[in-house]
């Protein structure tokens, strides 16, 4: 009960602002005589979320799969590249300029190439999300692995500890908060990538739904798709925050 009390004390301004915006929106549409295809009222968006002709479950499933796939790919590849960079100066010199080059490419511009190479499907859209989201993971992993106090490394040298042991016992736990903090950015980037991929080439998914509403002028459905996208995005973000809380409780309040 006290926890709930503290929660409501902290978040009532959020709730009030949100309710106020929704109410203003509804009032503006109702009394301002705005046409439905320009700006649908919150209530019709609400209706479109649950009813209407759109088979949400299928689209939601496709997009969620793409987002999770993109996130996992970015996380695994990003951490692996970060470890490689921190492990060996030669690998760092080989990889860093190349990765910086890849990161400066506008990923959206590559999406049509993915269509040519891989056709339609879930995988190219996952790849797009991973491509947008992997870079911060690489950088934060490499930084977290190298930001160890020199005295701590001296301690390792005194005991003649092998390099892998220093990695496992000191460097990797040290990097964990950095990695988790990058994964929060990746969670958002994975959503962007999946939707961009669907915009360019797809037959299913929430991004596909938005594209089709352009021709049908069914704006409330486009809004409903946006709501679903943000629900998936928020859930993934929340999962990463929870993971950080469980895996790196000592870093709480650091970022």
């Amino acid at each position: 009960m006290t926890k709930l009390g503290a929660f409501s004390r902290q978040y009532w301004p959020t709730v009030v602002l949100f309710a106020f915006l929704l109410a203003s929106w509804q009032t503006a549409v109702t009394f301002g005589n705005i046409r439905e295809y320009l700006l649908p009222a919150p209530l019709s968006v609400w209706n479109a979320l649950w009813h209407g002709d759109t088979a949400w479950a299928g689209h939601l499933w496709t997009t969620t799969l793409e987002i999770i796939g993109a996130f996992l790919m970015a996380a695994v590849v990003g951490v692996a590249l970060g470890v490689a960079i921190a492990w060996s100066p030669v690998l760092a010199n080989a990889l860093v300029p190349f990765l910086v080059f890849v990161n400066t490419l506008p990923k959206v511009a590559i999406a049509p190439l993915f269509l040519i190479w891989m056709g339609y499907g879930i995988f190219p859209n996952m790849l797009m999300g991973a491509l947008i989201g992997f870079f911060p993971v690489v950088i934060n992993t490499a930084v977290g692995l190298s930001q160890v106090e020199p005295d701590m490394l001296d301690l390792g040298r005194v005991f003649n500890a092998p390099k892998w042991k220093i990695f496992v016992k000191i460097r990797i736990p040290n990097a964990l908060p950095y990695i988790l903090s990058a994964l929060k950015i990746t969670a958002t980037a994975a959503v962007v990538g999946a939707i961009v991929g669907e915009f360019v080439a797809s037959q299913r998914g929430l991004g596909y739904v938005i594209v089709t509403t352009q021709s049908s002028m069914n704006t409330s459905v486009a809004f409903a798709a946006l709501v679903w996208i943000s629900v998936v995005g928020l859930l993934l973000y929340g999962a990463v925050v929870l993971l950080a809380h469980l895996w790196a409780p000592w870093a709480e309040g650091v970022d």
Binding site: D151, D154, V158, F159, K169, A248, A251
Partner: peptide
């Protein structure tokens, strides 16, 4: 040798006991 530095440089994610035991692990 035992070394003590100006900062305690304890590992933040380990308990005090685990920190004290670190040299054993590092020395195999």
């Amino acid at each position: 040798i035992g070394m003590v530095f100006q900062a305690p440089i304890l590992l933040k994610w380990r308990s005090i006991l685990e920190n004290v035991l670190l040299p054993a692990e590092l020395a195999g």
